[in-house]
Design a protein around this nucleic acid. Structure first.
Length: 495
RNA sequence: GGCAUCGUGGCCGAGUGGCUAGGCAGAGCUCUGCAAAAGCUCGUACAGCGGUUCGAAUCCGCUCGAUGCCUCCA
């Protein structure tokens, strides 16, 4: 029996502002769409957090036995930098600055995006469609919206008529805004365009002569509006109505609001059942953003080459750090927080590794099955990874207790404990065991260090502490730390 | 200015009407030739002011503060 039949999952629906019991349209199947990146520069850590959040969600659904189709787009058609007609396309601008083709920009940063997410151990989505690969479908959708009377053409551009749409629909229901308030608070901008009113948004834009990325359409040589691709591609691959739509918090308005409008205008149906929004990663209390330069690149985390960092960190440590906060909370990035996570991460991994070799007893002093369900309870409560991690640390404490002889575990429970930890640490949280220990190192290195450990033990037996301390201190200077325990000495390597 | 979210112990960060979050740091102890490591024990916090309640960090109101969105943004 599939696990999802035994577990009741609740998720926080941004549309209603409440945690709701999750019920997919088709039992056992899930369609999930997540807004992907605009590939005109390297992904920064804030972008990664969103995709790690949805990777956690994707992984948990898979773990529960759902058959899930996860669609995440690549925005490779440039969005305009501002709303005025003279605005420049971001990708075209980057191409101009780097003196290359726009699609070279797209290719370069798409590859970077994939490489980076792979380092964080994100699973690839089921389908990763591109905006430029769906120009035809976007034109078709514009035609439908025009036919239904929710859009108008002006000078080769097509705009969505928000005022008209709002007469029979609720524009603003996702972000909690009312159109009246928006109109009341509109600051009149000098360079207003062909729009009938400022809340309208482009479905198709006529390209200025210098605009490189352009396609023919019934209205003009131009390019699709920024919100349309997600509507079109989610509909194409998941249907007119699907289960989950996710994305960064900053996309809630206007992007997702516009998607709802486009979907309802073209199909008459509310496209999405559950809206999930991942919150921002901040740096120095401010949102990380490409445009402001307030950001950290993943490679800087790995190498430590950034003024905010004292050292480099493994991708899994950064991932663990992010998963210690709920995906809906703002998380502030800092070196000290990352250092704390690294220690906790290592302790968790040490305990996991040891869990397979625990000494067994006739009884258990800890209810492993009850603990296992609490792991599920945590994830069932809107993917509460911090609670899951806290629960895993209960097991860590217990494992240490068994090791020290203060707790007991049966053979059966030991297997259940080890397997459950494996499932949650690796399959659900998506962490990688990158901790460097003597088990992972080359035989030559570990053989050498073992030899030094023996020599040191011999020196200590002879009370030759000068020699023993020399071995210990010089190894430490090389980044090899000796740890004396009851059962002898082990070592760890600094990474 | 409008809309929204949030304000938790030294730091990060859960929870949410009565019951220990967790991690890191710190303190004491054990172990140790010394140290490190490891283990054990320890914190009574919820912005401020009112209100509801037998009882509120948790609900309501106000004040203050922070952040996000309102223009592209994960």
């Amino acid at each position: 029996m599939a696990l999802y039949k035994e577990q009741s999952l609740k998720l926080y629906n941004s549309m209603t502002g409440e945690k709701e019991i999750f019920k997919p349209i088709n039992e056992g199947h899930i369609g999930m769409y997540v807004c992907g990146p605009t590939v005109y520069s390297n992904v920064h850590l804030g972008n990664c957090r969103t995709f790690i959040s949805f990777d956690l969600i994707f992984r948990y659904f898979k773990h529960l036995g759902y058959k899930i189709r996860y669609v995440r787009n690549i925005t490779d058609a440039g969005h305009l930098e501002n709303d005025a007609d003279s605005g420049e396309d971001r990708i075209a601008k980057k191409a101009r600055l780097e003196q290359i083709e726009p699609m070279e920009v797209v290719q370069r940063y798409t590859v970077d995006f994939h490489n980076t997410l792979q380092k964080f151990n994100n699973l690839p989505p089921s389908i990763e469609p591109t905006a430029t690969g769906h120009i035809v479908e976007q034109i078709e959708t514009i035609k439908i919206i025009l036919d239904k009377g929710f859009a108008y053409e002006v000078n080769g551009s097509v705009y969505f008529d928000v005022l008209k749409f709002n007469k029979n629909h609720d524009y603003g229901k996702l972000s909690g805004r009312s159109l009246e308030d928006m109109i009341a608070n509109t600051r009149e901008l000098a360079a207003q365009s062909d729009k009938r009113n400022p809340q309208d948004f482009a479905l198709w834009k006529k390209a200025e002569p210098q605009h490189i990325m352009r396609w023919p359409s019934p209205w003009s040589d131009g390019f699709p509006g920024w919100h349309l691709e997600c509507t079109v591609m989610s509909t194409k691959y998941l249907g007119e109505q699907f289960d989950i739509h996710g994305g960064g918090m900053d996309l809630k308005f206007p992007h997702h609001e516009c998607e709802i409008a486009q979907g309802e205008a073209s199909t008459g149906r509310n496209p999405v059942n559950y809206w999930l929004h991942a919150n921002m990663l901040t740096l120095n209390g401010q949102k990380m953003a490409k445009s402001t330069g307030n950001n950290i690149l993943p490679n800087e985390i790995f190498s430590g080459e950034n003024d905010n960092l004292s050292k480099g960190f493994e991708p899994s440590v950064a991932r663990f750090f992010m998963l210690q906060a709920n995906y809906r909370s703002i998380l502030d990035f800092s070196n000290t927080a990352l250092l704390a996570s690294e220690k906790g991460f290592n302790r968790l991994m040490d305990a996991y590794r040891y869990s397979s070799q625990l000494p067994v007893s006739a009884t258990s002093s800890f209810s492993v099955s009850e603990w296992k369900q609490r792991c599920y309870d945590a994830m069932n409560d809107d993917f509460n990874s911090p609670i899951l991690i806290a629960t895993l640390f209960e097991a860590v404490k217990f494992i240490v207790g068994v090791k020290e002889g203060n707790e007991q575990i049966t053979t059966e429970d030991k297997e259940l404990l080890h397997n459950t930890m494996h499932d949650f640490i690796f399959d659900v949280l998506g962490l990688l065991d990158t901790t460097i220990t003597n088990q992972d190192n080359s035989e030559k290195l570990s053989g050498t260090v073992e030899l030094l450990i023996k020599l040191r033990a011999k020196a200590r037996n002879n009370k030759d502490f000068a020699t023993s301390d020399q071995i210990r201190d010089q190894l430490l200077a090389l980044g090899i730390q000796l740890k004396d325990g009851k059962e002898g000495t082990v070592f760890t390597l600094e990474n």
